[in-house]
């Protein structure tokens, strides 16, 4: 075996070995959780009224949040993808803030805003957020809309601009070209973005707890139910709900992979 071939094999083994180790690390976490779960207790835990409510509320709020996030992310990401000008990097840096700020910090910012005179006026005349279900949606939106925007921008960036240009030369307006050409071509990105946003919303905890609280059968979502079990040292209950959340996330990520495989986020 030549020296360079040996080097190649060694490097390949190292890289693949690292991947295998990392993968085993994730698998080990799941296996350990399953091993500690008592199968006989899974059903009564998942079907008690409090948890059934929490699961339903999580699915409902995450779905509404996803629709709202996409309504904002699609036009905003398109504008961002087209924009080449002054302050572009600063603008993008600010838009990325929700991705890097801890959700608890975002929740704090939201609450301080909602308790300010402007926030109080909005709540009085428009919609009550603090300790109410709209507060859950607002908190989730603040945390996840940045992800939706990021993924959608990548989808728009990866499109060949010539399709749109040709459509324009054939007489379509900018809006028509967007609806008939850009959006259908970004279909995969759209689904991937929605799936990721939805999964992230289901798991949101920090901002939700601060803005909406944890009122039993009112604002208690699945992630808060997990925390409550942890706080009461109910390890089995907490683990069962964690595994449920894991399955839901895995499903959403599988969707993301299937449709968003070509995207670079």
């Amino acid at each position: 075996m030549s020296k360079s071939r040996f080097g190649n094999t060694a490097f390949w083994t190292l890289a693949a070995g690292t991947l295998l180790l990392y993968f085993s690390f994730l698998v080990a976490l799941v296996v350990a959780a399953i091993a500690r779960t008592k199968l006989s207790t899974v059903q009564p835990i998942l079907f008690c009224p409090e948890i059934k409510f929490a699961i339903g509320l999580s699915l409902l709020t995450a779905t509404i949040t996803t629709v709202l996030s996409m309504l904002v992310a699609v036009p905003a990401a398109y504008a961002l993808s087209q924009y080449r000008g002054r302050g572009q990097s600063l603008l993008e840096a600010i838009l990325d803030l929700p991705l890097v700020l801890p959700p608890v910090a975002l929740g704090f910012l939201l609450l301080v805003f909602l308790q300010s005179s402007v926030g109080l006026a909005i709540q009085e005349h428009f919609l009550q957020f603090v300790f109410e279900v709209p507060g859950i949606i607002l908190a989730q939106f603040a945390v996840v809309s940045g992800f939706a925007l990021r993924v959608m921008k990548s989808a728009f960036d990866s499109l060949d601009p010539r399709y749109e240009e040709v459509a324009r030369t054939l007489g379509l307006t900018k809006g028509q070209a967007f609806m008939r050409i850009v959006l259908p071509l970004s279909r995969n990105g759209l689904i991937a973005s929605a799936a990721l946003t939805w999964a992230r919303s289901v798991g949101e905890f920090g901002a939700t707890l601060i803005v909406a609280g944890a009122f039993e059968r009112k604002t208690e979502v699945l992630s808060i139910a997990i925390f409550l079990n942890w706080q009461l040292a109910r390890i089995h209950e907490g683990l069962t709900l964690t595994l449920l959340l894991l399955c839901v996330s895995l499903l959403a990520l599988a969707l993301f992979r299937k449709f968003g495989g070509v995207l670079r986020v």
Partner: peptide
Amino acid sequence: VVTQPLDCGQTAGVVRMKQ
């Protein structure tokens, strides 16, 4: 009752934040 805080510190917190 508009909220059920999950620990004593949070209970003091919602009064402090005027919630």
